[in-house]
């Protein structure tokens, strides 16, 4: 169990293309940290720098308090689960699990008992003599997990490990990985582009975009107070509505609770746009363009009279009350409104 820390880490690829700039990130010992962001945000590169598969151009990486920049992957004593699982195709499940221990010249008797312990933890007992190509996706995933945990590493690194699984299995493995991490208490860095995975698995989440760290915090912090429009848009589905204040609140008089200045960017999540007048402040009517009925809820796409479009998320009861082409009254709770600087996108208080 070790702390992992980046100090002003920068990564440049050939041709001096800077993909990561001045990264400062601290993963606490025993923590489950999720790195999330759209493709190309350098989250995988960050993970690979921790693993030692990519060099660090400048700045420091500390693992367990010691500088790790120049250590080989093996010396860092971390283990990694790959998107493609990267099981060794020519080796049986047993050999895959024991490969790292053998290279470290562990006693054969200990290897045997460790393999059995990990196999029974992950339900692999029956599969030990199979080759990787004889495994289903979920089984291969478990073997990859087993290979990662058998060495009792300082940290687990996951690189989008669930993206090759079907939806049902993904939900199940999400639970199993979280459970395993809680039981072992090993520091974990988990890369994903899926914000649902990030929200459900991470103790803390680091959101990255274009090689920069956007925000680090517990899932609920990111949801409730995103520090900029990028995080606001990235976390939550459907996306938060982001629109200039005057297009939404033109008809609203400033009150003690809500004093938007013209020009600020307002953010409001679809679940906080209330159709009808149950909210605290009415904001006038908007025209219903389209409704997406998901059964348990209805997504209503609206346009305001000032020309802004926004999405509201309502329960199924709304069905009879609104229809495309009709007007609907909207209301909000002022404490659910986020305000951002129109140019920088930074959160305003």
């Amino acid at each position: 169990m070790s702390e992992i820390q980046f100090h002003n880490a920068t990564k440049r690829f050939a041709g001096n293309i800077e993909v990561i700039r001045d990264l400062n990130l601290r993963v606490r010992a025993g923590e489950f940290m999720v790195l999330v962001g759209p493709s190309g945000c350098a989250k995988s590169t960050t993970l690979r720098m921790i693993a030692g598969l990519e060099t660090i151009s400048s700045g420091d990486l500390m693992i367990g308090g010691a500088r790790a920049n120049d250590l080989s992957p093996a010396e860092r004593n971390v283990s990694m689960v790959f998107q493609s699982y990267a099981l060794f195709p020519n080796m049986s499940v047993r050999e895959n699990l024991s490969f790292g221990l053998k290279l470290r010249r562990t006693e054969p008797a200990i290897i045997g008992s460790e393999v059995n312990r990990v196999a029974s933890m992950l339900g692999l007992d029956e599969l030990l003599d199979r080759k990787p190509r004889q495994l289903s996706g979920g089984q291969a995933q478990r073997v990859a997990l087993g290979r990662a945990m058998i060495r009792k590493p300082a940290a687990f690194l996951f690189d989008e490990p669930l993206s090759n699984l079907d939806a049902e299995l993904r939900v199940q493995m999400r639970g199993e990985i979280s459970q395993m991490q809680r039981d072992l208490g090993t520091t974990t860095v988990y890369v994903t582009h899926d914000q649902v995975e990030a929200m459900t698995m991470g103790q803390r989440i680091a959101v990255m975009n274009l090689g920069r760290l956007m925000q680090v915090g517990a899932p609920i912090e990111l949801y409730e107070s995103p520090t900029n429009t990028f995080v606001a848009g990235f976390i939550g589905s459907p996306r938060m509505n982001l629109l200039p204040a005057e297009t939404l609140l033109a008809g609203v008089e400033a009150t003690g609770l809500l004093r938007p200045r013209t020009g600020t960017l307002l953010g409001i999540r679809p679940e906080h746009v209330i159709i009808g007048s149950r909210g605290e402040i009415g904001i006038g009517t908007a025209r219903v363009n389209r409704m997406e009925d998901l059964g348990h809820e209805v997504l209503v796409h609206l346009s305001t009279h000032q020309g802004a479009t926004l999405t509201a998320r309502a329960s199924g009861e709304i069905r009879g009350a609104v229809a495309p082409g009709k007007e609907a009254a909207l209301s909000i709770r002022p404490d659910r409104i986020h305000m951002f600087h129109p140019d920088t996108g930074e959160r305003l208080l």
């Binding site: 060099t55 660090i56 400048s58 920049n69 120049d70 080989s72």
Partner: peptide, 8 residues
């Protein structure tokens, strides 16, 4: 820095 690693 990582020059040693590279040359190895």
């Amino acid at each position: 820095m990582s020059l040693a690693l590279k040359s190895v």
